[in-house]
Design a protein around this nucleic acid. Sequence first.
DNA 1: GATGATTTGTACGTATGTATA
DNA 2: ATATACATACGTACAAATCAT
Lengths: 227, 227
Amino acid sequence: MKPTANPADVSHPRMPRTSIVEELGRRVADDIVEGVLLPGVRLEEVALADRFGVSRTPIREALRYLEATGLVEKRPNRGVVVTRIGRERLLMLFEAMAELEAIAARLAALKMTPAEKDALARLHEGSFGLVHADDRASYEELNRSFHESIHRGAHNDELMALIVAMHRRVASFRHAQFAVLGRLSSSANEHGRVVRDILSGDPDAAASAMRDHLVTVGDATASYLLV
Amino acid sequence: MKPTANPADVSHPRMPRTSIVEELGRRVADDIVEGVLLPGVRLEEVALADRFGVSRTPIREALRYLEATGLVEKRPNRGVVVTRIGRERLLMLFEAMAELEAIAARLAALKMTPAEKDALARLHEGSFGLVHADDRASYEELNRSFHESIHRGAHNDELMALIVAMHRRVASFRHAQFAVLGRLSSSANEHGRVVRDILSGDPDAAASAMRDHLVTVGDATASYLLV
DNA sequence: GATGATTTGTACGTATGTATA
DNA sequence: ATATACATACGTACAAATCAT
């Protein structure tokens, strides 16, 4: 691999090409979020360097970055591992996540434009068919879109960045456990409450509905988690 | 300087000594938060390396870490600057900060122990004397303690970490502007509402009171900010 | 627009600390 | 407990990009 050039990025020569470190950070982060690298797995610098065909220097910088995001943990002189947390702290993570999503719903109720509200309503309406067909994969995809459109509807990039970062951390633990079952229709119903309160512009109700929704999700998944 | 030894840390030989990178990260972060390094200032690697008597390698790792926290911005091949943001984004930052503090107040109302509530009440009572004496420095110190005790009272380390990180970022902009004037007594009154609602265990009221308090603070400071 | 100076980006070597037999 | 193996931490050298002239 050439030092600074990115093979997949030759289109816009004047656009600041993404550095190797950023690329490495993304790829390792993706592996963690997608469950390729599970919590507790040790990340050796030379192994990563060989795998990506670079020296250890950019690897170390990428790991420093990931350390700051909380996806990996670095113990001085003892290497880096994918972050592994106990049950208590995981519950805190879910609680914080639920509160952040509640904020997003709150702000969305206050600031979503009519067009955004309309799009949200349509998105939600599309979910009933998937529930009835028990199409879990499609529902999961729609669920993502649903939450993302609310995040965007909050019109606050800083808050959205917090939520995205938090979501990656939570996702990294989802794979260490079983899938959650039988929640499709109840999830859709909970979404319905959120949509109703956002559309009617009731921030407190929307926040409350979203919080309850996430708390339910949190309990359902946390109960399966290890340690 | 020796590679891994920390001159100021010779007491506990078995404690994992903090690496140079961590030390550098802390010191640069402190300089940014305390206003020694103002937004927009360029951070040159060699200059920092000379200043701290180390090579560029640990400097670069520390800067990567700070980049992830949002305190500095790194543009590929173009160096690192202390993060500088426009008015719009700053308002988002204040809004997010206010919502996070509101969450903390909410959880504190739900989870603070009687002892913690008692300590909070006493802390708040101590503020009236300072307001009357117009002792701004002491009031600011008490204000910190007040908010910190609420953060701790939320009993959620993940949320607290978010708030601390956010607070550092906000603080880095406080120094680029004038001091806020004449808010001592109104601040104390707003605190009073928060305390009342936390003590009575009303999460929604506590969140609302805290949010209003922070929104006031945000408006007051944001209106003085540059760009 | 080209050239030299400055700065960032990456590779690599060596020392130090940690784990294991 | 000591020695050996191995991974990490930092420093140094070189390459590439940016900036100033």
